[in-house]
Amino acid sequence: MVVANRQIIQGTLFAIVATFFWAFNFIAPYVTGPYSIEDMVLARYVIAGVMGLIFLLFYRRQLRGMSLGQRLSGMALGVNGYLLYSICIAGSVICSGPALIAAFVGLVPLLQTVIGNLQSRRLRWKSIVIPMILIIAGLALLNMRALAAGPAAGHPLSGLAFALGAVASWLSFSVINQKAVAKLAPATTEVWTCLMMIGAGIGALVLLPLAVGAGKALVREPDLLNAPVLLFYAWALIIAFSSSVLGAGAWNAATRRLPMVLSGQFVALESLFATVLGYAFLGQWPGLSEIIGMALVVLGAARSLHIILASKDIDVPSPALLEEIAHEYDR
């Protein structure tokens, strides 16, 4: 039980780090300058793919220990959980404004927790009702301004389709990734992250001709060395490194250590950190509703952690795997 609890606490710390760096995705509207969100999505994932290839050079020995199927699965998950998810988020905002996607993405922690408990039957449903209510209420308060704005004029059905696609993309990614990571050797966690980055980068390159055909500003820019373009690429690099390297790497480490019923609720912390970063870029303080929302999300996540640690039915990896994970963590 002590060893299992240590794994849960380590996984919790990794999940907090992951959601913090994932929140860097939400600073895109503040840093795109004269260019579009579509430009930022493609640029950051192409950069992430290049970084994945570079980092993979340092893990060639670990890569050789993975099967072709595992390599392809890792890259496919990058396309699904990274690129497709971001495209669906951007598409929903463009078509119907931020309110719809805020409501749907707010359901992700709830749905992921439900799916996790359905798979493992780890906890009694009544024990996680209160934490989920706290988190849902907190997310509602964090997104109150977007929800109050109502749907924007545009293409509401397309916005709904993109919002549903975002939820389906993330949930399928979470379920498949959880199972895949559990079958990997602990030393290949970094390789798995690199493969997902490469997959997302390849997907972005495939979509690049479509962006050219759609007349996106960045890909038609005649002078790629002017200040706005260089600043744009600098921010794309920062977002790619923060989200795809630090965030994804920490999440894969968390996934190895946490049950899905708990990791699902920690996803809600992403909205908390995104709110904080958004107000930081605006140079403002969050309002009372956002502060209360943050407190509720933290309280709900903390309550979930307490319930898991107090549970007597915690699945523990094999002793050999625990020793290898602990050795990896100590390094």
Rank of each mutant, 00 (worst) to 15 (best):
A185H: 14
I292R: 03
A234D: 06
G165K: 09
V261E: 14
S263A: 13
V108N: 11
D39V: 08
Y85W: 12
I308Q: 04
G116I: 06
S36C: 07
F104R: 06
M66N: 02
V41R: 02
P34L: 00
A23Q: 11
A320Y: 12
Q178N: 10
A28H: 04
K312M: 03
A182V: 01
P151D: 06
L141E: 01
V175L: 14
A146E: 15
G65L: 02
L57D: 05
C88T: 13
A180C: 02
I198V: 12
E221M: 01
I135Q: 01
L83V: 08
L207V: 09
R71V: 11
A214L: 14
I239T: 02
L142S: 10
K216Y: 15
V191F: 05
A76R: 05
K183I: 04
A90Q: 09
V105P: 00
E270D: 10
A240I: 03
L123D: 04
V46F: 05
F24V: 08
S289C: 07
L305W: 06
I130D: 00
W251H: 11
S120Y: 04
Q265T: 06
I87T: 04
A280P: 02
L164K: 05
S243V: 10
N117S: 10
Y85I: 06
P286R: 14
V212R: 14
G154Q: 13
R303W: 08
L288K: 11
L139C: 07
A90Y: 13
G213Q: 15
S96R: 09
I16S: 11
A268H: 02
H155C: 04
R257P: 01
S169A: 15
A204P: 03
M260H: 01
W235S: 00
I8D: 01
A4N: 03
G116M: 03
L288E: 07
V297Y: 02
L111E: 04
A254C: 03
